[in-house]
Simulated assay, not measured.
Amino acid sequence: MEERAHQIRPRGEGETPKIRREGQEMRIPLALERRPDDLIIANAISAAVIVAVFTLEDSPVRWILGLVFVLILPGYVTTAALFPSRERIDWIERGALSLGLSVAIVPLVGLMLNYSSAGIKLSSIAFSMGAYIALLSVIAYYRRMQLPEEERMRLEIYIDLDLRKYPIIDRVLIVTIVVVLIATVSLLVYAISSPGGGERFTQLALLNGDMTASDYPTGNNGTVIVCIGCNEGEDTDYTLVIALVAEESQNYTSLRYSESLEGYNAMEIGEGLAVNVTVVDGDWVNSSFSYEFDDAGVFKLRFLLYKQVEIDGAEPYREVYLWLTN
């Protein structure tokens, strides 16, 4: 009788839960009620993301950790702080709340950063969310420890590998879900790691001298900022042609090359000014361009961007223009 009582006594404070295997059944108890493994893992992932921001570029590891960091961890630690008890909500509800709260919290943090001196940058977002996760983890652990041990949240992972005990329909569903899950994760990893993925494009824009998209010059002299953004998956060589053409012709008839756009450029009707520009992928090149001309009439100042150095007979890849009157 004493031996039986010894076998069923509750775990002591110093004992560690052990994985129990019965046939093809496996139970993995996590002692969250005594040791905050979940909060430790959350902060470890948070720290790994902050390190990855500064050490890894376009790595699948960085993307996967980043998704967990943004879409799960903020909501999870918030839910753990709000509901430290196992009785209020179950783990399905915790998962749903973690996702929903994360979607709400991250934009709010971004909004606060937008009005701060730090601004919205990858590094500021990473540090801010990391600090939020750490602070809420401390609060969650404190509130959890204030409850009696039997009321604290806990998690036990139950795995049953013996599918023969299930009906045929359940077996088919289980296998299908596993296959779909593996395929989804595989496709996600491939999409993230595959070079050249995503849309490739180039942006061409004009700003006024104050770097705003308004109050452009309309007379026979002025200054604009020509902005070229490269998202082609690689560093790209462009040729930018700026031509002053008559309203009725639209085309330039001659072309001269220049090393840069600096200084005032005296424009002749029908003449194009060409300059070669190399833009690093993911970056912008902003060049100030000042013009003047003496001819009277209505003219179109065309900014033609070619995605190559040799432009004879080629169609422009991007174009913007200004209407000018003298």
Results as ranks from 00 to 15, higher is better:
S98I: 00
G272M: 10
S249M: 08
R4D: 05
L273N: 05
M267L: 05
I28A: 01
N208C: 11
V61W: 13
A213N: 13
I28C: 01
V285W: 04
W323P: 07
S288R: 02
L181Y: 04
E268R: 03
W63F: 15
L188I: 08
T218H: 08
Y190S: 14
G23H: 02
G95W: 02
R4V: 03
E199L: 11
V61Y: 07
V189R: 10
W63C: 15
S290I: 15
F303S: 02
I40Y: 03
N265I: 11
W91E: 05
L122N: 05
A44M: 15
T236V: 01
V241F: 00
D210N: 14
W63T: 11
Y166K: 12
E271F: 07
P29N: 03
E199T: 09
A81L: 00
E271C: 13
S287P: 05
L136C: 05
R35K: 04
D90R: 02
N276M: 11
G197V: 12
D312V: 10
P167M: 02
F127Q: 11
G297C: 06
G209P: 14
A213Y: 09
L32D: 02
V320I: 04
Q146K: 08
L65D: 09
A42F: 14
Q203T: 14
A131W: 11
V245A: 12
I120C: 06
L65A: 15
T212G: 14
M145C: 08
N43K: 07
I228L: 06
S186G: 07
R171L: 13
K307F: 04
A183Y: 12
W91L: 02
L155C: 13
P195D: 15
F127E: 09
R35V: 04
S124E: 10
G14S: 13
Y158P: 13
G119R: 03
L136H: 07
P36A: 11
T78E: 01
Y291G: 08
G23I: 07
G100M: 02
V70C: 09
W284G: 02
T184L: 10
P148D: 04
I120Y: 15
G130R: 02
S186H: 07
V77S: 02
E151W: 04
E57W: 09
R9P: 05
Y306Q: 08
D38G: 12
N114F: 06
R154I: 14
E87Y: 13
R200D: 13
R302H: 07
G119V: 06
D210Q: 15
Y317V: 06
R144V: 00
E151V: 08
I105P: 07
S137M: 08
L147C: 09
F201R: 09
E234P: 09
T223V: 08
V275I: 06
E13D: 15
S254Q: 12
A205H: 15
R4P: 06
A183D: 07
A205L: 13
S193E: 12
I125C: 09
S137Q: 06
T253M: 06
E319M: 14
L206W: 14
A140Y: 01
Y257V: 07
Y166D: 09
T218G: 10
S186L: 14
I192Y: 12
P74Y: 15
E232M: 10
P195C: 11
S137Y: 02
N276Q: 15
G272C: 12
E234Q: 14
N221W: 04
N221H: 07
R143C: 00
M267Y: 02
G75C: 01
S193K: 13
A52N: 04
V285C: 10
I157W: 03
D160K: 01
G198S: 03
